[in-house]
């Protein structure tokens, strides 16, 4: 494949970035920038919204408009922003803690309203920035800095939650599957309404080390081996399913987005 000129979206002078060697965050950012280049957006048409966490530092490395809010609240900020600027293409890049713990309420309501925004969830299976504690998306039995003998709680499927809340597009993949990653990001960005892509990504510094998965390379093959296509996953029995992440597209529909629906209700005759 020919890689388009994504570097125009990169604030090259801000490099090197703060991420650890082998972190998946750079892969996600690059995939996003490549998609932006493919779709050839102008700088003033797009905005990257982030919260707080390792992945959320991505905003420091882009050359276009960038908004970084407080931990967990990105989608609430973006709700106001999109009402003021419905023309702006907004993508959110947030962590699993940011979106599924502290920001869960806003995520559900943004999906319910069908806000026209693409949410990319960098799921590194733990809180990276604060040193590797478990998040609501961390699998059971995982070793983390706050579950030294294994996480006892049940994890959440954020994709199914987004589906139930009303999202127009939901998919999950990993940074190992980078072709699929770019495809899903492109589809999510192109979709009018709320879209969410959960991206499984390695945090070798904490999750990989605590769970003895190995270095960056081993983590990537771990994601290869631990993920199965959605249709295959659905054929597994519940016990078997516990050992795998499904991957693929869960939802694709065209419910009217929040702003369009609001405008339409103001002028019912149109």
């Amino acid at each position: 494949m020919v890689i388009p000129d994504y570097k125009k979206y990169l604030a090259g002078e801000r490099l090197p970035h703060i991420w650890c060697a082998g972190c998946g965050n750079g892969v996600i950012l690059k995939a996003l920038l490549i998609v932006l280049a493919e779709l050839n957006f102008k700088h003033e048409e797009i905005l990257l919204a982030t919260g707080i966490g390792c992945i959320c530092r991505a905003g420091d490395y882009v050359s276009f408009q960038r908004f970084q809010g407080t931990h967990g609240r990105t989608l609430a900020f973006v709700t106001g922003l999109k009402i003021a600027r419905p023309d702006l293409k907004v993508f959110c890049l947030i962590g699993d803690g940011d979106c599924a713990a502290i920001g869960m309420g806003h995520l559900i309501h943004a999906a319910r309203r069908n806000l026209d925004v693409a949410v990319l969830v960098a799921n590194n299976l733990n809180y990276g920035m604060t040193g590797g504690q478990f998040s609501p998306l961390t699998p059971s039995k995982s070793l983390t800095s706050t579950s030294r003998t294994g996480k006892t709680e049940t994890p959440l499927d954020i994709c199914r939650l987004a589906e139930a809340a009303g999202a127009n597009y939901v998919a999950r993949t990993s940074v190992f599957h980078h072709g699929e990653l770019r495809k899903f990001i492109r589809e999510a960005i192109s979709k009018k309404g709320f879209s969410l892509v959960e991206i499984l990504t390695p945090c070798p510094t904490y999750y990989g080390r605590y769970n003895k998965i190995g270095g960056p390379g081993e983590m990537l093959t771990w994601f290869r081996d631990k993920t199965v296509p959605l249709n295959k996953y659905l054929q597994m029995n519940p016990e078997e399913q516990k050992d795998y992440f499904w991957r693929g597209k869960l939802v694709e529909r065209d419910t009217l987005d929040f702003y369009t629906q609001g405008e339409k209700m103001k002028r019912p005759d149109d």
Partner: peptide, 23 residues
Amino acid sequence: IQMEDEIGSIAAVIGASLGGLRA
């Protein structure tokens, strides 16, 4: 807009203000 709580309310206000609406 009626937000899900006051954290969301002030966040939406800040977002709208950044987008050019007096909020």
